[in-house]
Design a protein around this nucleic acid. Structure first.
Length: 176
DNA sequence: GTTAAGATTCCG
DNA sequence: GGAATCTTAACG
């Protein structure tokens, strides 16, 4: 139980398996002052391949998205709207660009709030979830139910891609 | 070198 | 509905 950090094989699967599987897992963050907090992941979104018009890799490899072509298990962060750091976990095999956007963690609903709470910055770009001392993901026990729905904020991607039900939200049943 | 737009959130 | 705010990408 101490050593329940998710391993490489978890992140090497297709992003459409990894994204829903992350719902309900525990995101652990060790801050610079030594404080450790863990949060249950409540909402994720999948971005999959160059053909996905909502994905940052839709125009091929660039300076910003190059980490998406890395094999699964590393962090992809980027700054947007001049205010927010978005947290993503790269998945799948090397050279297939895909990532899971962490849209919500327990108590912090919304990708911008997640980044702010976790005090993310550019230094997390490419951080490995497999051996980082600052951020990683742990397994959680018990059954998890989630709902699928269309992704948010991707109007530019076109009808076909806007419709994909690639957002995964935790459903609370008994608790609360 | 310059410019336009974005996986959002908060406030009015 | 609009502002906040800055990086990236797409020009030239």
């Amino acid at each position: 139980m101490q050593n329940s950090r998710l391993s490489s094989s978890f992140f090497l699967s297709d992003v459409l398996e990894v994204a829903p599987a992350l719902v309900g897992k525990k995101l652990v963050r060790c801050f610079d002052n030594g404080e450790i907090r863990s949060y249950r992941i409540t909402e994720t979104e999948a971005y999959r391949g160059e053909e996905d018009q909502a994905c940052h890799a839709r125009r091929g490899r660039t300076q910003r998205n190059r980490i998406m072509y890395h094999e699964g298990g590393v962090v992809y962060v980027y700054f947007i709207y001049g205010m927010y750091w978005m947290l993503n976990f790269v998945s799948s095999e090397k050279d297939f660009p895909s990532a899971v956007l962490i849209r919500g963690i327990e108590g912090f609903d919304g990708p911008g709030k997640v980044g702010r709470e976790l005090k993310l910055d550019a230094s997390f770009y490419g951080e490995s979830l497999l051996n980082s001392k600052r951020i990683w993901v742990e397994t959680a026990t018990g059954p998890v139910q989630y709902a699928c729905s269309p992704r948010i904020g991707i109007n530019y991607a076109g009808e076909e891609w806007m419709r994909k039900p690639w957002r995964f939200s935790l459903i609370r049943t008994t608790n609360r």
